[in-house]
Design a protein around this nucleic acid. Sequence first.
DNA 1: ATTAAAGTATTATTTATGTCATAAAATTAG
DNA 2: CTAATTTTATGACATAAATAATACTTTAAT
Lengths: 228, 228
Amino acid sequence: MLKGRFDLMKKGKHNCDLKSCFFCKLSLKEWLPAIDVHRQMQQFKKGELIFTEGEEVKGMYVIYDGIAKVHKKWGDDKELIVRFAQKGDIIGHRGLGNDIVYPVSGTALEAVTACFIDLQFFKSSLKVNHELTYQLMLFFAEELQESEKKMRNMAHMPVRDRVINALEKIQEKFGTTDDGFANITITKQDIANFAGTTYETVFRVMNELVEEGMIKVSGKTFGIIVLR
Amino acid sequence: MLKGRFDLMKKGKHNCDLKSCFFCKLSLKEWLPAIDVHRQMQQFKKGELIFTEGEEVKGMYVIYDGIAKVHKKWGDDKELIVRFAQKGDIIGHRGLGNDIVYPVSGTALEAVTACFIDLQFFKSSLKVNHELTYQLMLFFAEELQESEKKMRNMAHMPVRDRVINALEKIQEKFGTTDDGFANITITKQDIANFAGTTYETVFRVMNELVEEGMIKVSGKTFGIIVLR
DNA sequence: ATTAAAGTATTATTTATGTCATAAAATTAG
DNA sequence: CTAATTTTATGACATAAATAATACTTTAAT
């Protein structure tokens, strides 16, 4: 009885119901007990690395709570943010492929709780759950489309528009609060890293946009009023 | 007997042996007759569009002969080449995903013979051939890695290095002839579109590289001598 | 509570790279 | 075979955007 309650508490710690996320939702119900055995809830503090570019791929993470950035470094003082992730998003899957190292890093932007699935088990899951594999394939296809669109923008679109784009994408991703701000706190440096430019340029452009009445800024968040 | 020879000739026209390409190789042998019924050999002249960005996705193409570029337009006089494709490569698969339109165009850089698989049948094939789906997923993962790496380069790497990179990638992809040239003829404009820059910059950089003895140029081809 | 570190603010300067203009050569099409 | 179009060649010029420099402010860590 006591032991039972203890077990419950331990499980209760992560609260994952084995049916909400991409991974569980697309797995056969017969497979869920296997997932239950293999999943591992992990905590990351704000600013902490979840996985590191260049390191051996250990597995995938499904974010249960918090937000993270997925980024790729350039030299030792520049980076490009490839994607933001929040509750329900899978990260680390870029580590799939022939190479056994992560091509990007994942960093918690605020405290993150994530469900870790080791690579071995993840691969087994793909072999067993065809729908999971199919949907993951489609997900990669979508991400590739996004990536190539952004790459084209990086090559041809002027910074100002890239910054606007970045702001739109961020607000779209994290939603809008009642008072019309993007539901996230984010540094201008990270906006710059996402838009593929420098802090100074983001600073300038955002000033312009505020003057033009297109966005509003308050501390480390912003809200889009009208664009274009 | 006569009929048999006729059939043979008709088949002979495309010469595809149903076991060389990605698609056939990863399909169950029981599925090959179905592929045989559905495949459709198509010809494209140099410069001809194979599929067009923004148009409804009709299906996939496996290149049987010739080379093509996969590109994404910007405005009406700029583009970014996302990928080159040659014999054995699949193109058009970027059309998979939620959206039903091609996110890119495919254009023959020299006469192309390709095996066309309509979308409907391709999807059925994925449902039936799990290994195909799995490998396609991995292929997308690889392409995503490539894309994000290039995107990061686009954001942070100086043009000169991007041009060098483009040349390396092209020569690596198409191989080297006996006399040390990349096994392809390609315009400087296309090199520029691949490197994400302008013709003039490619012209300038390639001149530099020739002067520095790092590459050699002959008509519409080039060869890398030493780099870095 | 007290440093240290990270983020913000701001302007001046530099430079890398795109744009423009023009002509010749080469390739493709009728 | 000739015209039309594409590709190459090249220099001058413009400018977008990065770099540098400096100060202040907020946030995180011991």
